[in-house]
Design a protein around this nucleic acid. Structure first.
Length: 610
DNA sequence: CTTAGGG
DNA sequence: CCCTAAG
């Protein structure tokens, strides 16, 4: 890090720039940063005065339009200065540039978060590395800027913004459960952490802020403390603490304790609500706040201290988390997600076929920074084949299962320790978002013929991400094999959606062009290899002809073990099979005789075999 | 690497 | 779903 004094030299130009447009373009969740471009071409944080000034300009206009002139002007200035200021959200690879993105986390007032003052020093050369990906790292703050050119907050309450403030960790003598602290204490801690007062009373906000501040603080990471689950504790203590917490929340779950005294229950609720509230331009969920919600502790911790260039794996993990979070938050049933928060490092890994949802907060020690930073542990999307030596890996992380299972157990009922493997299975199955069957497409329900079906359109463009329902890959079962040790088998039930896509794909590109179909229709489903598609098609084919005679009762027939494939789809499959001459000779001989499309199909089928 | 088919 | 043979 370069110690760069905020020396404002010549040609100071106030800069407003959009640093982040929230994904999904909620309202106008735009955060502006205020910087100046100084003489030798660096962006220097705006001074308090400048911020004030600009704030006046911004006064009561939330809309972007008024800002346009400013922005334009500024952009020009920047370019003139040899700078490029991305108007969109940007992510900077810190390793390459000693960029200090420091969007001052704590504006004292939640109400005016659009005017976050941010400062960053971004030389042009580095800005070319700016990653325009939707994800933004701007929200994670590297407070480890050695230059004490502290927060230029526009926070009104900012008083002690001296340039020589150092975090005061003297308060961190034992472990602190932020969850336990009353607002007042939190405010104190906040002050200790950021060096200024705050009047915010929102506990959630305070906790988040503090956690973030500490996590990203270089000074802090030099201590022997770590943060986990809103608990500041000594390294090494986290395990213990965690168990305790988990147990407690399990109890709460049982209704054994309505321990408001500990506040854990309400807190969990808050968190969950908080996390699932992404979409709402909620009162308290300012643009800034939301963005933090998105990243939450996970990513905040990641960005804590990154001295070295992140490995490929690191990056993969990061992105996976993010994608996972967006999809999971929407669907997670309360109970389950609560468990995850309660026992982050556990994997629920019941015996068979159950996808573990326990992901969001799984962390491990990161060796990258050398200082034991916690970064989330996620396994990456499987690229091709599963690794063969999978078991050893499992052995290394056995911690969770027991506890997790027990908790699920205790939470759902009082069943004895026997016979509940199956039980757990079912329970989780019913709650797991990935397994929830999507509502059938309306037209599919009644219509028997495909012509009436309004299957999700497979337009030429990219499919909507309807595979996003579940991204967890933890659906892993080990299967014994004679020749080797164990081999990994992951099973992923086909959703109706996928089936429909497959069918449509076949309709378009023809059966056999599996890789094409995979590319075009299943681009959003990294799992599902072309082989999978082929296999599935084979099954569909089989199913479609088997079920042909009894076409009516299928939809509502007894509980079909797995997702029953709606008859219309099967019809469609048959149709396609006809058209493509895929009718199995045997079947086509006996079964297709009486059906409308069979004449042609017979021809084609025949011709195919001649 | 993709496809096809068997296990 | 996995594996393998064949283009």
């Amino acid at each position: 890090m370069e110690a760069s004094e905020p020396k404002i030299e010549d040609c100071a130009v106030p800069v407003t720039s959009t640093i982040r447009a929230l994904e999904k373009e909620i309202a106008h969740p735009i955060v502006y940063q205020l910087v100046r471009v100084d003489g030798d071409g660096r962006l220097v944080p705006a001074t308090q005065d400048e911020i004030m000034a600009v704030e006046d300009l911004l006064e009561d206009d939330k809309c972007e339009s008024k800002l346009v002139p400013d922005t334009r002007q500024i952009s020009e200035s920047c370019i003139t200065e040899g700078y490029l200021l991305e108007r969109n959200s940007f992510q900077v690879t810190e390793e390459k540039s000693n960029v200090l993105v420091d969007p001052v986390p704590d504006l004292g007032k939640i109400d005016a978060p659009e005017k976050v003052a941010v400062h960053g020093l971004v030389p042009l050369s580095e800005l070319s590395n700016v990653d325009q990906s939707v994800r933004t790292d701007v929200c994670s703050h590297s407070q480890d800027a050695p230059n004490e050119d502290t927060p230029n907050e526009d926070a009104p309450s900012t008083s002690a913004t001296g340039s020589s403030w150092k975090p005061d960790f003297s308060k961190l003598e034992g472990k602190i459960c932020l969850d336990d602290l009353p607002v007042k204490e939190l405010q104190e801690t906040f002050k200790a952490t950021f060096g200024r007062e705050t009047s915010v009373k929102d506990k959630q906000w305070l906790k988040r802020r503090i956690t973030m501040g500490l996590t990203n603080s270089c000074d802090f990471s030099c201590t022997t403390f770590i943060i986990r689950d809103n608990v500041v504790m000594k390294k090494g203590e986290e395990q213990i603490c965690h168990r305790v917490k988990s147990r407690i929340s399990a109890d709460t779950e049982n209704g054994v304790a309505n321990s408001n005294s500990r506040g854990s229950l309400s807190d969990h609720d808050n968190r969950i609500k908080d996390d699932s509230d992404l979409s709402g331009a909620d009162v308290s969920s300012s643009a800034f706040e939301s963005c933090n919600v998105t990243k939450d502790l996970n990513t905040e911790q990641i960005t804590a201290k990154r001295a070295r260039k992140p490995t490929k794996r690191y990056i993969e993990e990061l992105s996976e988390i993010e994608s996972r979070e967006t999809s999971e938050k929407l669907a997670l049933p309360d109970k389950i997600s609560r468990y995850q928060f309660a026992c982050p490092e556990t994997h629920i890994r019941p015996t068979k076929n159950v996808r573990s949802n326990a992901r969001p907060l799984v962390t491990r020690q990161d060796s990258l920074g050398g200082s034991g930073v916690q970064i989330p542990f996620v396994s990456r999307i499987r690229r091709s084949r599963p690794r063969e030596n999978f078991m050893p890996l499992l052995k290394l992380q056995p911690s969770g299962m027991d506890m997790a299972t027990r908790q699920v157990r205790s939470a759902f009922d009082i069943s004895g320790p026997q016979e509940d493997d199956k039980r757990n299975n079912d329970l989780i199955k019913t709650r797991s978002p990935g397994w929830t069957q999507q509502p059938l497409i309306a037209a599919c329900e009644k219509d028997e013929h495909y012509s009436g079906m309004k299957i999700v359109e497979l337009e030429n463009d990219v499919e909507v991400n309807d595979c996003s329902e579940d991204n967890s890959d933890e659906n892993v079962v080990t299967v014994p094999t004679q020749k080797g040790g164990m081999r990994r088998k992951h099973h992923r039930p086909w959703t109706i959606n996928e089936v429909v896509k497959l069918v449509e794909g076949v309709a378009r590109y023809g059966a056999g062009r599996w890789s094409e179909i995979k590319r075009l229709a299943f681009s959003s489903c990294p799992y599902r290899t072309s082989v999978d598609l082929k296999d599935k098609w084979r099954n569909l084919l089989k199913a479609s002809f088997v079920q042909l005679p009894a076409e009516k009762g299928i939809l509502n027939s007894r509980k079909q073990a797995s997702v029953p494939i709606p008859a219309p789809i099967l019809s469609r499959v048959r149709e396609l099979a006809d058209m493509q001459g895929q009718i199995p000779p045997v079947i086509s001989a006996c079964k297709s005789s009486g059906h409308s499309s069979s004449d042609r199909s017979v021809h084609e089928a025949r011709s195919g075999f001649l």
